[in-house]
């Protein structure tokens, strides 16, 4: 309980919640509607490490008492992060990925398989997990070529790090359509999204 006695959990939320949440939402909405584009976001939240400001801002904008939240082991073991999210989002934490509406992932390279998360049902494909991944870069990793709704011809995104065997995992995710998970990729100051409709082609090294 040590973390709750310090001031860490209560500082670092949105200064002006309606405006901050709107700005972050428009970045995420545009990124989700235009896969492959990178949307800039200001640093609006100051969470305790290893949670990053961009991922924290997305969590503050989307998560509340209605949305069970799953944390990857590195975030889950941080008392400060749990306390901060508890205070600012009020989202119940779950250890069962299939119960999560959102998942916060600080180490995408060590993430469990995407198929463990809620995929939605054929009748309610919206009841799936949206994963918020903390990545170092959206443009300097290995290039992914994207096609699908929201992309006029083709687009490129180069995030790093990504979950293991990402191209194969994403192909399986794509095959489950309309079921499947969506990804929000958060880098320092920037956001990109991969909705379940996007088809990914990896280029030869």
């Amino acid at each position: 309980m040590g973390g709750f006695l310090t001031s860490t959990p209560i500082e670092g939320g949105f200064q002006n919640p309606p405006m901050a949440a709107q700005a972050v939402f428009r970045a995420v909405m545009t990124a989700m509607a235009r896969p492959g584009t990178v949307q800039a976001v200001a640093s609006l939240a100051q969470p305790p490490a290893p949670l990053t400001p961009t991922a924290a801002a997305v969590a503050l904008m989307l998560c509340d008492h209605d949305t069970p939240l799953w944390l990857d082991p590195r975030l889950d073991t941080s008392t400060d992060v749990r306390g901060w999210l508890g205070f600012h989002c009020g989202a119940p934490l779950t250890t069962i990925p299939a119960d999560a509406h959102f998942a916060l992932v600080s180490s995408p390279g060590e993430l469990i398989a995407l198929e463990n998360f809620a995929q939605g049902s054929q009748e309610y494909p919206d009841r799936s997990t949206t994963l918020i991944l903390q990545v170092d870069t959206l443009t300097k990793g290995r290039a992914l070529h994207l096609e699908g709704p929201g992309i006029e011809t083709s687009a490129t995104l180069a995030p790093f790090p990504l979950p293991r065997h990402f191209a194969a995992q994403w192909q399986q995710n794509r095959a489950r359509f309309p079921r499947g998970v969506d990804l929000i990729l958060t880098a320092p100051g920037a956001i990109a999204c991969l909705p379940r409709t996007t088809r990914i082609f990896e280029t030869e090294a």
């Binding site: 309606p18 494909p125 969506d182 379940r196 409709t197």
Partner: peptide, 24 residues
């Protein structure tokens, strides 16, 4: 509140909009 709706309602609607975009 800005734009009439309270923040919890906006979060709920924003979540629905993102799902709608992901499942056209």
């Amino acid at each position: 509140n800005f734009a009439y709706l309270d923040e919890q309602t906006k979060r709920m609607i924003r979540r629905a909009i993102l799902k709608g975009i992901a499942i056209p």
